[in-house]
């Protein structure tokens, strides 16, 4: 049953990264769009994301609940030592979620819209940036449970070159996901080309940031190169991701939405796999060689079993409904009243 829970944890993180990433990316694309084109970006983005965006963010809550029920030690340790970036991310989530709703549901469309937009755009960049920082901090061996002073315990645990570059990398990935996703949502060729250009820019930036991440990992002594290239599965995954890039590029150039979405998702899965599979089940690596493991630090057996059942039963309700929701708004156009 432990593995059922771990699969759900992994799936929830991946889905949050893909769907939530595309959602954050919507704001990032807006951020990198000239003022004249922002209106257009916004309109297309929100027709696509509006109905599903509440559901998208549920994956984060599912992740957190799995962590604190099934692996409380891991949840508690991260909460203590990554308090500051977690709080920053939360403030981003608050600002972004509320700005999104406010701009849609303000009965009067006036200058307040500018305020909402600005908040939305900035928080769309800040939130995934800190998500990236948090993710990187779990494996960078900077979380120091023995630290005696404030700086080492609560600041250097997350503030280092490796985490920061991963933060930027995450922002680029989100931007790419959004631009790639949105290509299938628009009917106009002009728009499609516009978003394809954005997606390409984001890929280029992501690759550049990826290089920076590697450079930073050498500087911070994070054995990233060893994790990724040390054994066959990692090399295979990265090779697959690299080889699919030209196809992705082709898909973008010719506006093939399906190719872009499938390959985009595939790329992310491969990268995530290559980076994480070597230290599984140790999802948090601590300073001084310790670690927090999904196996050693799992909750008591009865807890894991009931959590697994709760997740399985929950899925029976959630997945068909979620699928139908996404399908409906993809396929069904409104009937005339």
């Amino acid at each position: 049953m432990l593995y059922v829970v771990i699969v759900y944890l992994w799936a929830a993180i991946l889905l949050y990264l893909l769907l939530g990433g595309a959602d954050f990316g919507a704001g990032i694309i807006e951020f990198f769009t000239s003022r004249n084109n922002r209106g257009r970006t916004r309109k297309t983005m929100y027709q696509a994301i509006g109905p599903v965006w509440e559901a998208i963010h549920m994956w984060l809550i599912i992740t957190i609940v799995i962590l604190f029920v099934g692996f409380p030690k891991i949840y508690a340790t991260l909460s203590v030592y990554l308090h500051i970036p977690l709080t920053a991310m939360l403030l981003g989530i608050i600002a972004r979620g509320t700005a999104f709703v406010f701009r849609n549901y303000d009965a009067v469309k006036d200058d307040m819209q500018k305020v909402y937009n600005r908040i939305f755009i900035y928080s769309s960049v800040i939130t995934p940036f800190f998500l990236g920082i948090i993710a990187a901090s779990t494996v960078s061996r900077n979380v120091d449970v023995m630290a005696q002073d404030f700086l080492h315990a609560y600041i250097f645990s997350w503030l280092n070159w490796f985490s920061v570059t991963v933060g930027f990398f995450t922002v680029c990935i989100c931007g790419f996901l959004a631009a790639g996703y949105i290509i299938g949502e628009t009917d106009s060729t002009e728009d499609r080309q516009f978003f394809a250009r954005k997606a390409k820019w984001m890929i280029v930036s992501a690759v550049l940031c990826g290089v920076l991440v590697f450079l930073a990992s050498f500087k911070e002594n994070v054995p990233l190169a060893e994790w990724v290239f040390g054994k066959a599965p990692g090399i295979f995954a990265i090779a697959a991701a690299s080889l699919s890039l030209p196809f992705l590029w082709y898909g973008l150039t010719h506006g093939k939405a399906i190719i872009v979405r499938l390959l985009g998702g595939f790329e992310i899965c491969m990268i995530l796999f290559a980076v994480t599979y070597r230290h599984f089940p140790n999802i948090v690596l601590l300073k001084g060689g310790g670690h927090l493991s999904l196996i050693e630090h799992q909750g008591q057996e009865k807890v894991i079993i009931s959590l697994a059942w709760a997740l399985l039963i929950g899925s029976i309700f959630i997945l068909p409904a979620l699928g139908y929701l996404m399908y409906s708004f993809e396929k069904k156009k409104p009937r005339e009243a």
Binding site: E54, M58, I62, F68, V69, A76, S306, L307, F317
Partner: peptide
Amino acid sequence: MEHAGPIFGMPFSLEGTAFFIEAIALGF
């Protein structure tokens, strides 16, 4: 949370489901 999380986590896990359904239904 380190101690209580696993014990009183059941209602939270189920709440996750209920709330997810609420979000989906609200979208519809």
